[in-house]
Design a protein around this nucleic acid. Structure first.
Length: 288
DNA sequence: AAATTGTGCAACCGCACGGCG
DNA sequence: CCGCCGTGCGGTTGCACAATT
């Protein structure tokens, strides 16, 4: 029998979205809200599958999105959350307002992974990487034993970690605001932080070459040698002073998107039109 | 200047899950 | 209980651009 495809693939457009398509999608969602995604392309006049529309909206067009590189504080938070939650990007993203799971996943794979490896930390296990030695056969044996022990330990940890993850998720669901992962850990019975060495921000020493072009404008100007010099402290995950695109301002609070009414009746539409036409290079169109 | 290699990110794909009849 | 349907999630791919040779 098999599962039905999410959409009729024949004649559907794939690949990068054009400004015109973006316009149609935004216009439709502003008018109708986020409804049945399967129907969206048809109703919006798009030759895309509903899935593609949803992805485009959540990862790129959603107005509460932050753009640009993750700040050091956000990065530290991602690392910390990843050590508890693993590759559950959507869960991690839920604690970083304005960031998408896709964005975090990409950032992890392209930046954080390398950073951790450089520091001698396994990005998957968050444990120090033991450098392999090939000179002494005895050493090789002990190395194998060590690996075996690590795997054994890992299995034991996995079960306790699973319990923790469930507890964490329950805690997180209860809380409507971002939760300090450290605080959660403190309150999580039955979990010993010694078992899973967490990377404390003070352990992260990343030189920030002043000439680095990739470092975002967020920290520009501060010639720091430590991640924390930039982020301001280990105990609290203070989101930095972001360079918010003006197009974000009309949504009210920068992080508060929950109460936003998608319907143009709310008066938001007028502001939307104004900002969109002003701020987004590819959004040179009039919505209404 | 051209070719090659590396990097980052948007988008796609397929599976899993939950709701509903 | 079962199957269908819509949606969400995580892994992977492909492309554009940058860096290097």
């Amino acid at each position: 029998m098999g599962r039905q495809p999410c959409c009729e693939k024949v004649g559907l457009k794939k690949g990068p979205w054009t400004a015109e398509e973006d316009k149609k999608l935004i216009n439709f969602i502003l008018t109708n809200g986020q409804c049945c995604w399967r129907a969206v392309p048809k109703l919006a006049g798009l030759l895309r599958c509903g899935k593609s529309c949803r992805l485009r909206w959540t990862n790129y067009l959603r107005p509460d999105l932050k753009r640009g590189l993750l700040s050091e504080a956000e990065e530290n938070m991602v690392i910390d959350l990843h050590s508890h939650l693993g590759n559950r990007w959507s869960k991690i993203a839920a604690h970083l307002p304005g960031r998408t799971d896709n964005e975090i996943k990409n950032h992890w794979n392209t930046h954080i992974k390398k950073k951790l490896k450089k520091m001698g930390i396994d990005p998957q296990t968050h444990k120090p990487i033991i450098p392999p030695t090939h000179e002494d056969p005895q050493n090789q044996l002990s190395q194998a034993q060590t690996t075996e022990k690590i795997e054994k330990d890992q299995k034991m940890e996995d079960s306790s970690k699973e319990t923790l993850v469930v507890e964490l998720e329950e805690e997180l669901e209860k809380s409507s605001t971002s939760v300090d992962a450290d605080e959660l850990l403190k309150n999580s019975p039955g979990f010993c932080t010694d078992e899973v060495p967490l990377i404390q921000p003070h352990e992260i020493l990343v030189s920030c070459p002043s000439s680095s072009s990739s470092s975002s404008s967020i920290n520009s100007g501060s010639s720091c040698t430590s991640a924390l010099d930039c982020s301001g402290g280990a105990e609290e995950y203070l989101l930095p002073c972001m360079d918010w695109p003006e197009s974000m301002y009309f949504w009210g609070g920068q992080d508060d998107f929950n109460g936003w009414d998608l319907f143009p009746d709310s008066g938001v539409g007028d502001q939307y039109q104004r900002h969109i036409s002003l701020d987004h290079d590819s959004w040179k169109f009039e919505l209404f």
